[in-house]
Design a protein around this nucleic acid. Sequence first.
DNA 1: TATACAATTAGATAATTAACTAATTAGATG
DNA 2: CATCTAATTAGTTAATTATCTAATTGTATA
Lengths: 203, 203
Amino acid sequence: MQLDKVVNYHKALADTTRMRMLILLADGEHNGGELAEKLCISPATVTHHAAKLREASLINERRDKNTIYFTLNDYFVKSGSTAAVDLIYRNAAGVKEGDGDGMEDKNKRLKDSVVKNFFTSEGKLKHVPAQLKKKLIVLEELVLQLEKGRKYTERELNAFIGQFHEDYATIRREFIMHQFMFRENEIYELNPSELWAKWEVLS
Amino acid sequence: MQLDKVVNYHKALADTTRMRMLILLADGEHNGGELAEKLCISPATVTHHAAKLREASLINERRDKNTIYFTLNDYFVKSGSTAAVDLIYRNAAGVKEGDGDGMEDKNKRLKDSVVKNFFTSEGKLKHVPAQLKKKLIVLEELVLQLEKGRKYTERELNAFIGQFHEDYATIRREFIMHQFMFRENEIYELNPSELWAKWEVLS
DNA sequence: TATACAATTAGATAATTAACTAATTAGATG
DNA sequence: CATCTAATTAGTTAATTATCTAATTGTATA
């Protein structure tokens, strides 16, 4: 489930030692011994915390001889931070019963205008809006054209997005970041939850 | 310390029950009894979790007769999510030894151009940049003109910001959000950590 | 004042977890 | 192969915490 992943991210950051570990790693690569020393904890404890951070995909590891070097996984550190907010506000709106066409007029009008303004008449995306609520509308518009339940390789997904905009890499990340899709073992799939199809956008 | 506050925010979100509680509250006001029922937990447990959320300023409460109604504190829910990322990356750069003028040329140039482009020749702020790294530069520029250690009332802070831009409320929030200042009992103060004065901006 | 209702506090229990030490594994090198 | 080094695993302990039930507090209202 979605929720557990998000909670897990926050569990990983819900400890001073781990947070300090991440701060150290933001400065660059460090191995276990260095971390243990700088944090004044035993190597075993480093292993313990590294496991938690790894579970939440917040770090990467590389081995050189006996030594394991840790680095930050910038991408997940940053994307996780928006995930909770997205989850909270999106689900709330989705939960509203009896909708379908229940979207308020105001939102409907915003949606129409965003679609009109950010897509060309040929259906290409001009650019990704900077403002969150508009960005989410655009992403949803794209994502609606993906097949539910189908598994996409990264290459396939790139090709799909490429139809609309050349910067497929950024948009692909946004799909994940805002939980329209999820990724497992390099395979991408639509978020089966329909929630994102019926929320109210953020303030 | 800064760190503990951020960790506390994540602790608050590091539990499925609390996360579900927030999702419910995003939908609107709910009292304790309703929450207990919808979450299938006892009223006592609701109280327990509410305390944690309150500590992290994620909810507000209002009493009517016997009943206490909870609502989301949108502002803190959202601002907290950026706090960890800010902390991690900012501190990392601050830790780099032997700086002072150690900012790389590239960043120096960016900074100069941002200051030039977003401030008028009279020193007024044209508008707040949308792009994070530029926004942070602008905020820092403002904040550097505050007195270290001095306590500001909200009114005083508004007046200060008002010299530069009419939308003092938004900018005041950004100060908190990005941890240039902190607030305690309606009193604002500069973040005593000098870190923010010497970081590298986010990717 | 007595009664009703909602929420909190007290107190208990079970689960989780951060930390340590000691033993083990994994990899490289003389 | 013997040895060194770095990290992991095992096993323990103490602290934290999610949850419950039962008792208590706080706020109306008959």
